[in-house]
Design a protein around this nucleic acid. Structure first.
Lengths: 103, 103
DNA sequence: TTAAAATATGCAGATGCCCTAATATATGAG
DNA sequence: CTCATATATTAGGGCATCTGCATATTTTAA
């Protein structure tokens, strides 16, 4: 069964979203943002990551529509913008489910 | 908040699983295997992929414990071996949910 | 044991991602 | 305007992944 162009495009999009999430630092950021929007400083401080590196990851995720942002004065708040990303994180980061299935 | 070693290991494992799934051809294979175990030939025939390439992807997924296999005579049947992988596929490949959120 | 079918492996060029360091830009206070 | 804080961008070396191609291995039948 050869996939149609639309199906291929859809697969590539799904894979692209998963590639964004498939990264330890980005997973940590996403987990943190489950608690609500946060500024860049709050994020890299909480996770003990370099500022520039954190900003890169945030912008990457935003460019892939996984995050959205909102400026308030000198600060920028990031938040999760994709409902499916939340579901994926729950599949992978739920304590009970993961310890048995993934670990 | 610096993560503990155990937390880091867990994140890396979750990310590793996601990396395996984050690939168009592997997603197609996994979707196909949702319908039950299949032989290599059934898979590469159904998906119109090169045999060697398909075998590589299958072995990769098996090495990461995403798939399991069972030999029956000259044929090898592959099946999904990780419940969370199924959940992830559903997050990403469910028709209605995806068109609106990921596409 | 020879042949055919089914599956697996090795290799290699190309591409892309990871992460660090340095630097640039934007915003608001004074 | 100048400074300090907050955020973003650029550059680059190193490493892993992608994927086509050739070939090897395994299994069964004859």
């Amino acid at each position: 069964m050869t996939p149609t162009d639309a199906q291929l495009a859809h697969l590539e999009k799904a894979a692209a979203i998963l590639r964004v999430v498939a990264h330890p630092a980005r997973l940590r950021i996403l987990q943190l943002l489950e608690g609500g929007e946060k500024t860049v400083t709050e994020i890299y401080t909480a996770l003990d990551l370099p500022q520039a590196y954190t900003s890169q990851q945030l912008n990457l995720m935003k460019s892939k529509d996984v995050l959205a942002s909102r400026r308030e004065g000198p600060q920028v708040f990031y938040r999760i913008a994709n409902r499916n990303v939340l579901k994926i994180i729950h599949c992978v980061c739920a304590e009970s489910a993961v310890e048995t299935d993934l670990a």
